[in-house]
Computed example of a mutant assay.
Amino acid sequence: MKLATLKNGTRDGQLVVVSRDLKRMRAVPALAATLQQALDQWADVLPGLQAQSDELNAGTRPAEVFDPARCAAPLPRAYQWLDASSYLNHVELTRRARGGEMPPSFLTDPVMYQGASDEFMGPRDDIVATSEELGVDLEAEIVVVTGDVPLGVDAQAALGHVRLLGLVNDVTLRGLVVPELAKGFGFVQSKPASALSPVLVTPDELGAHWREGKLHRVMEVSLNERPLGRPQAGEGMHFHFGQLIAHAARTRRLIAGTVLGSGTVSNVGDEVGVCCLVEARVREQLREGRMLTPFLKHGDRVRIEMRDDDGASLFGAIDQTVRIEGARA
């Protein structure tokens, strides 16, 4: 089952069920007006949502055309946004870029922070910044959305609380990261709003490619219509999503609608490219002695997507243009 949220002038938008091929959709106000409402009542509304999904996939009844340009983020605002760094190759490279090393504890204890969840951008919304000097970067990641998660859940049981999966562009302002982290209190200004994929999908839609808490598909990232990275998301993920959820729930419950990110997808080696620009820059520094890749500029276009074996888009594409406020057109 695939779910999306349409912009309708309200903060939380309108929930729609979307066909597997991302061509048709249907609003379901009698079941749930918003995705958060559906997550709050998941056991009660799931059969009805699944029935609508089956009808859409069968094409037996009229439906509206699905247009990602009409989409808000599936969860335009969420109760919680937690982002991990489970791809340790990315962690090592970015810490090296800041002149540091990866502590041994990172191998046994996940790195995670709580980000701003009051606004998620839609998949076609502009990436807005006040200056290119801030070092605007993209980060292509996988996200899961949970139901209610009990305190102290173990990693295996935690996977049973995954309701939906999707993609996120976790925008980072690299010029603010180092001075902000030097204060010892975490990200705030260096982490503006992130963008979610047009649809989120239930785990069963992914078949055998969702296994052992990892999504074994290629993350496709392009910049200005040129390939930037094609890493396999199932490789190099040191902590799977069950472990990440259990880490977050070690001392508190998680509420339905919690969004949890994998961290930037990253494979060892240069041949598959990268999912963020700072990683490209560090690889250049190590390989050639200097950083050549610039951060995002006004007018740059970022696209993030995953496909199935037949080349069909699983979540729809995050397709954003960078807009620097005050920049010349």
Rank of each mutant, 00 (worst) to 15 (best):
M1Y: 11
K7D: 10
T10K: 05
G13I: 01
V16C: 04
V18G: 06
L22V: 08
M25Y: 04
M25P: 03
R26T: 09
A27I: 00
L31T: 08
A38T: 07
Q41E: 11
S53M: 08
D54P: 11
E55D: 15
L56H: 06
N57G: 09
A58S: 14
R61E: 13
A63R: 00
V65M: 12
P68H: 06
R70P: 00
A72T: 03
P74L: 06
P76S: 11
P76N: 11
Q80D: 13
D83M: 05
D83N: 11
S85T: 12
S86R: 02
E92L: 12
E92F: 07
R96C: 07
R96A: 10
A97C: 10
P104K: 07
D109P: 00
V111N: 09
V111W: 13
Q114S: 11
A116F: 08
D118P: 00
D118M: 02
D125R: 13
D125C: 10
D126V: 02
I127T: 03
V128H: 14
A129R: 13
E133I: 05
V136D: 09
E139T: 06
E141R: 09
I142F: 11
G147I: 02
P150E: 00
A155N: 12
A155Y: 02
A157E: 15
L165S: 02
G166F: 02
L167Y: 06
V168M: 15
N169Q: 12
D170I: 08
L173W: 06
R174G: 02
L176V: 01
P179V: 12
P179M: 03
L181I: 07
A182N: 14
G184Y: 09
G186P: 03
G186Q: 12
G186F: 08
F187R: 12
V188Y: 13
V188L: 04
Q189R: 15
P192R: 06
S194G: 12
L196D: 03
L196P: 01
S197I: 01
P198W: 05
P198L: 14
V199E: 14
P203K: 00
P203F: 09
D204M: 04
D204P: 06
G207K: 08
A208E: 15
R211G: 08
K214V: 02
K214I: 04
L215M: 06
H216I: 01
H216Q: 10
S222E: 14
E225V: 06
L228H: 09
L228G: 03
R230W: 11
R230Y: 12
E235L: 15
G236E: 05
H238G: 02
H238D: 01
F239S: 00
H240P: 00
A248W: 01
A248D: 07
A249P: 10
R250I: 10
R252Q: 15
R252P: 08
V259T: 08
G263E: 10
T264S: 13
V265G: 01
S266I: 00
N267R: 13
V272R: 12
V274E: 07
V274D: 00
A280D: 06
V282Q: 06
E284C: 03
L292D: 03
T293K: 09
P294G: 01
K297R: 15
R301Y: 01
R301T: 02
V302R: 01
R307S: 05
D309W: 12
D309H: 04
D310S: 14
G311L: 02
S313G: 08
L314W: 04
L314E: 03
L314R: 08
F315N: 00
A317S: 15
D319Q: 07
V322M: 14
V322D: 04
R323M: 10
